[in-house]
Amino acid sequence: MPTIAETEVSKPARIIGRILSGLVIVFLLFDGAIKLVPWPVVTETLDRMGYGSSETLARSLGLITIVCTLLYSVPPTSILGAILLTGYLGGAIASHVRIGSPLFTHTLFGVYLGLMVWGGLYLRDGNLRTLIPFRR
């Protein structure tokens, strides 16, 4: 069965992509870890967002965050992880829109993080470049 040839990725692009992806991975693993504990700031934030101060919900969200981030961090499953993280971040954005959070600091933070997820992956993964080519 023929396969699609992987697009060549330059060394600088790969390095920048790994740095961007690494920042996202560290941030999301930390975010997931504090939800597993869960620290009072996590349950208080859930309560302010209208979900109640449920430790079970916080732990569930933490586990989902960590699993999706680990999928993103492993090259064979990185595209699946990016898709799952996009859905997760979309839910966070919708929650902030629902409660009227400040636009640039809270609501759009998920967009910023999503751009870093996909930007880092696009820069480091030739398969994604083949799947979504930009014309020059």
Rank of each mutant, 00 (worst) to 15 (best):
P2I: 14
E6K: 15
S10G: 10
K11Y: 10
K11N: 12
A13Q: 08
R14A: 13
I16H: 06
G22N: 02
G22D: 03
L23H: 08
L23F: 11
V24T: 06
I25F: 09
D31C: 09
G32H: 00
K35T: 06
V37K: 14
P38Q: 05
P38N: 03
P38F: 03
P40A: 13
V42S: 07
T43Q: 06
E44N: 15
T45F: 13
T45W: 12
M49E: 14
G50Q: 05
G50T: 05
G52S: 03
S53F: 12
S54V: 00
T56P: 07
T56M: 12
A58N: 00
R59D: 06
L61K: 06
C68I: 08
S73V: 04
V74P: 03
T77R: 04
T77C: 01
L80P: 05
L80T: 15
A82T: 04
A82H: 07
T86Q: 08
T86I: 07
G87S: 07
Y88E: 09
A94F: 08
S95K: 05
S95P: 11
S95L: 09
H96G: 10
V97F: 13
F104D: 11
F109R: 11
G114I: 06
V117Q: 09
W118E: 00
W118H: 03
W118K: 02
G119Y: 00
G119S: 01
G120Y: 02
G126Y: 01
N127V: 12
L128Y: 02
L128M: 01
R129S: 04
T130K: 14
L131Q: 10
I132H: 05
I132T: 09
I132G: 01
F134N: 13
R136A: 14
